[in-house]
Protein backbone atom coordinates (compact mmCIF):
# COMPACT_ATOMS: atom_id res chain seq x y z
CA UNK A 1 0.00 0.00 0.00
CA UNK A 2 1.61 3.24 -1.11
CA UNK A 3 -0.51 5.73 0.75
CA UNK A 4 -2.87 4.77 3.53
CA UNK A 5 -6.61 5.04 3.12
CA UNK A 6 -6.83 7.56 5.94
CA UNK A 7 -4.53 10.01 4.14
CA UNK A 8 -6.74 10.00 1.06
CA UNK A 9 -9.85 10.42 3.17
CA UNK A 10 -8.27 13.35 4.98
CA UNK A 11 -7.42 15.05 1.69
CA UNK A 12 -11.04 14.57 0.73
CA UNK A 13 -12.10 15.99 4.08
CA UNK A 14 -10.01 19.12 3.59
CA UNK A 15 -11.53 19.67 0.15
CA UNK A 16 -14.98 19.11 1.59
CA UNK A 17 -14.50 21.63 4.39
CA UNK A 18 -13.07 24.19 1.96
CA UNK A 19 -16.12 23.71 -0.23
CA UNK A 20 -18.50 24.16 2.67
CA UNK A 21 -16.75 27.33 3.87
CA UNK A 22 -16.78 28.66 0.29
CA UNK A 23 -20.49 28.03 0.03
CA UNK A 24 -21.01 29.80 3.34
CA UNK A 25 -18.89 32.90 2.81
CA UNK A 26 -19.05 33.84 -0.84
CA UNK A 27 -21.55 36.50 -1.76
CA UNK A 28 -21.30 35.91 -5.48
CA UNK A 29 -23.74 33.22 -6.56
CA UNK A 30 -21.18 31.69 -8.92
CA UNK A 31 -18.79 31.49 -5.95
CA UNK A 32 -21.36 29.38 -4.11
CA UNK A 33 -21.50 27.09 -7.14
CA UNK A 34 -17.72 26.76 -7.06
CA UNK A 35 -17.98 25.64 -3.44
CA UNK A 36 -20.57 23.04 -4.39
CA UNK A 37 -18.20 21.66 -7.04
CA UNK A 38 -15.46 21.31 -4.43
CA UNK A 39 -17.78 19.37 -2.13
CA UNK A 40 -18.77 16.97 -4.90
CA UNK A 41 -15.17 16.45 -5.90
CA UNK A 42 -14.25 15.59 -2.35
CA UNK A 43 -16.89 12.88 -2.33
CA UNK A 44 -15.57 11.54 -5.64
CA UNK A 45 -12.09 11.33 -4.20
CA UNK A 46 -13.47 9.36 -1.26
CA UNK A 47 -15.22 6.93 -3.59
CA UNK A 48 -12.14 6.28 -5.67
CA UNK A 49 -10.03 5.81 -2.54
CA UNK A 50 -12.53 3.25 -1.32
CA UNK A 51 -12.49 1.58 -4.73
CA UNK A 52 -8.76 1.08 -4.43
CA UNK A 53 -8.28 0.31 -0.76
CA UNK A 54 -11.39 -1.56 0.43
CA UNK A 55 -13.36 -4.54 -0.86
CA UNK A 56 -15.78 -2.04 -2.44
CA UNK A 57 -13.97 -2.69 -5.69
CA UNK A 58 -14.89 -1.33 -9.08
CA UNK A 59 -18.25 -0.12 -7.75
CA UNK A 60 -16.41 2.85 -6.27
CA UNK A 61 -15.26 3.97 -9.69
CA UNK A 62 -18.79 3.54 -11.06
CA UNK A 63 -20.09 5.78 -8.28
CA UNK A 64 -17.38 8.31 -9.03
CA UNK A 65 -18.44 8.38 -12.68
CA UNK A 66 -21.99 9.16 -11.64
CA UNK A 67 -20.57 11.79 -9.30
CA UNK A 68 -18.88 13.46 -12.26
CA UNK A 69 -21.80 13.43 -14.65
CA UNK A 70 -24.57 14.50 -12.29
CA UNK A 71 -22.79 17.56 -10.85
CA UNK A 72 -22.08 18.67 -14.38
CA UNK A 73 -25.81 18.62 -15.09
CA UNK A 74 -26.48 20.40 -11.81
CA UNK A 75 -23.95 23.12 -12.62
CA UNK A 76 -25.70 23.73 -15.93
CA UNK A 77 -29.06 24.24 -14.24
CA UNK A 78 -27.55 26.35 -11.46
CA UNK A 79 -25.94 28.64 -13.98
CA UNK A 80 -29.18 28.93 -15.93
CA UNK A 81 -30.92 29.99 -12.72
CA UNK A 82 -28.15 32.45 -11.88
CA UNK A 83 -28.36 33.96 -15.35
CA UNK A 84 -32.11 34.33 -15.00
CA UNK A 85 -31.66 35.99 -11.65
CA UNK A 86 -29.06 38.32 -13.12
CA UNK A 87 -31.34 39.25 -16.00
CA UNK A 88 -34.15 40.10 -13.62
CA UNK A 89 -32.30 41.83 -10.81
CA UNK A 90 -29.05 43.02 -12.41
CA UNK A 91 -27.06 41.53 -9.54
CA UNK A 92 -25.62 38.18 -8.51
CA UNK A 93 -25.23 39.07 -4.86
CA UNK A 94 -26.94 36.33 -2.89
CA UNK A 95 -27.64 38.74 -0.06
CA UNK A 96 -29.97 40.59 -2.40
CA UNK A 97 -32.00 37.48 -3.20
CA UNK A 98 -34.55 38.05 -0.46
CA UNK A 99 -37.82 38.61 -2.29
CA UNK A 100 -39.45 35.56 -0.75
CA UNK A 101 -38.93 37.09 2.70
CA UNK A 102 -41.65 39.67 2.32
Amino acid sequence: MIVSLETMLLVGAIMFVCGVVTMATKRNAVGVLIGAELVLNASNLNFVAFARYTPFGIDGQAFALFGIVLPAAEAAIALAIILNFYNNHMTVDVDKANELKQ
Binding site: I2, M8, V30, L33, I34, E37, N41, N44, L45, V48, A49, A51, R52, Q61, A64, L65, I68, V69, P71, A72, A75, A76, L79, I82, L83
Partner: peptide, 28 residues
Protein backbone atom coordinates in the same frame (compact mmCIF):
# COMPACT_ATOMS: atom_id res chain seq x y z
CA UNK B 1 -7.38 9.45 -9.56
CA UNK B 2 -4.68 8.34 -12.01
CA UNK B 3 -2.36 7.47 -9.13
CA UNK B 4 -5.11 5.46 -7.42
CA UNK B 5 -5.45 3.29 -10.51
CA UNK B 6 -8.73 4.80 -11.75
CA UNK B 7 -7.50 5.87 -15.17
CA UNK B 8 -10.89 6.02 -16.86
CA UNK B 9 -12.40 8.06 -14.06
CA UNK B 10 -9.40 10.40 -14.09
CA UNK B 11 -9.67 11.03 -17.82
CA UNK B 12 -13.44 11.54 -17.45
CA UNK B 13 -12.77 14.05 -14.68
CA UNK B 14 -10.45 16.01 -16.97
CA UNK B 15 -12.80 15.84 -19.93
CA UNK B 16 -16.05 16.68 -18.15
CA UNK B 17 -15.16 18.61 -15.02
CA UNK B 18 -12.19 20.59 -16.29
CA UNK B 19 -13.20 20.77 -19.93
CA UNK B 20 -16.93 21.19 -19.39
CA UNK B 21 -18.15 22.22 -15.96
CA UNK B 22 -15.30 24.70 -15.41
CA UNK B 23 -16.00 26.25 -18.81
CA UNK B 24 -19.65 26.61 -17.77
CA UNK B 25 -18.64 28.21 -14.47
CA UNK B 26 -16.24 30.62 -16.11
CA UNK B 27 -18.87 31.54 -18.71
CA UNK B 28 -21.25 32.24 -15.85
Amino acid sequence: FFLLGADFVGATQLLIYVGGTMILVIFG
